[in-house]
Simulated assay, not measured.
Amino acid sequence: MTAVEPLAGVPACALGESPFWHPREAALYWVDIPGRALHRWTGRDGAHRQWPLPTEPGCVAPRLGGGLLLALRDGLWHFDPGAGLTRRVAKAPYDTATQRFNDGKADALGRLWVGTYSEDGRTGEAALYRFDAGRIERVAGGISASNGLAWSPDGRTMYWADTRAHVVYAFDFDVSGGTLSRQREFARFASRDAAAPAAYGGRPDGAAVDADGGYWVAMYEGARLLRFAPDGTLTREVPLPVRSPTMPCFGDDDLKTLYVTTARKGLGADELAREPWAGAVLRLRVDVPGLPVNFAHA
């Protein structure tokens, strides 16, 4: 494993999220949620481009037919890098005054799974939705900050986190039907109130799975990445030079570069001086490759 470094020539995000490596373009995409922007960095030349968006983007996924699928506050949209937003394909199924879309990814058959974030902090108001064949359906709920979506290499386990509750769940996942069963706790972490100040290790945010089934999760406010084996055993901890990593993804041709979005939102001048890379996209090399991104069929 190599040292952590930031992507050069890329502006800091207030809250970077939803990175994915686009194999056809050899490029990294991600969003800045409060910055209302989509970003792309091209690996072969280091070129960076960003697009302003009308509302907060929760996540982004590549489309099989070309372009991207963006989850904005008001719904799911097709996006073309040359033309911008082209069509809303699903209206947001929640009260947009108190919620917005958050973490989301496509499964192996191209269905988009996307959760919501309760901005007023009410426990149980956020949910997880599945978008398939033009329909968006609620499939799980009872949380306040949906995050941590990822699938095992065989597709039979889906992971889902509630960041505010400091817990990661696992489900049995039926690939053909796109249904969930047997929800259980996969990992739980002490809250800031429950842990001694020096022992607080952050809360689970975005995640990715490697080819051996390792679940890599960014610990927001914990300045670290954690890797768990499929049985829930903690196998690796990677310290990071920023307090709030938000989500990892695997990229480059060999899928052995771990890209990590981070946040700087809420940091004061003194904190930013101590964390000059806060809001940057970080990267490091790992030994086990990740899984390629799934394309949305919508």
Score class of each variant (00 low, 15 high):
229 A>L: 04
251 G>Q: 10
218 A>H: 14
215 Y>E: 09
227 R>N: 06
199 A>F: 10
238 V>G: 12
198 A>E: 12
168 V>M: 06
195 A>M: 14
228 F>S: 02
198 A>Q: 09
168 V>F: 02
168 V>W: 03
198 A>M: 03
253 D>E: 15
255 L>I: 11
215 Y>T: 01
213 G>Q: 01
164 R>T: 15
179 T>G: 08
241 P>A: 02
174 D>I: 02
226 L>E: 09
229 A>N: 11
206 G>I: 09
181 S>D: 14
160 W>L: 10
194 A>C: 09
204 P>V: 02
238 V>I: 12
171 F>I: 10
249 C>A: 07
214 G>Q: 00
228 F>T: 08
177 G>C: 00
231 D>Q: 03
212 D>H: 00
233 T>P: 05
195 A>I: 12
238 V>F: 02
205 D>M: 07
206 G>V: 09
250 F>P: 11
218 A>K: 03
200 Y>Q: 08
177 G>A: 03
169 Y>C: 08
213 G>N: 09
240 L>E: 14
199 A>K: 03
184 R>Q: 14
258 L>V: 07
192 R>T: 04
258 L>D: 13
180 L>I: 09
223 A>M: 09
219 M>R: 03
239 P>W: 05
165 A>Q: 09
251 G>L: 09
203 R>I: 10
198 A>H: 02
182 R>H: 15
242 V>Y: 04
163 T>L: 08
171 F>A: 11
166 H>F: 10
221 E>L: 01
191 S>C: 14
252 D>P: 15
194 A>E: 13
179 T>R: 06
258 L>M: 13
191 S>H: 08
214 G>K: 01
242 V>L: 08
166 H>S: 15
164 R>E: 15
193 D>W: 03
193 D>C: 05
255 L>D: 07
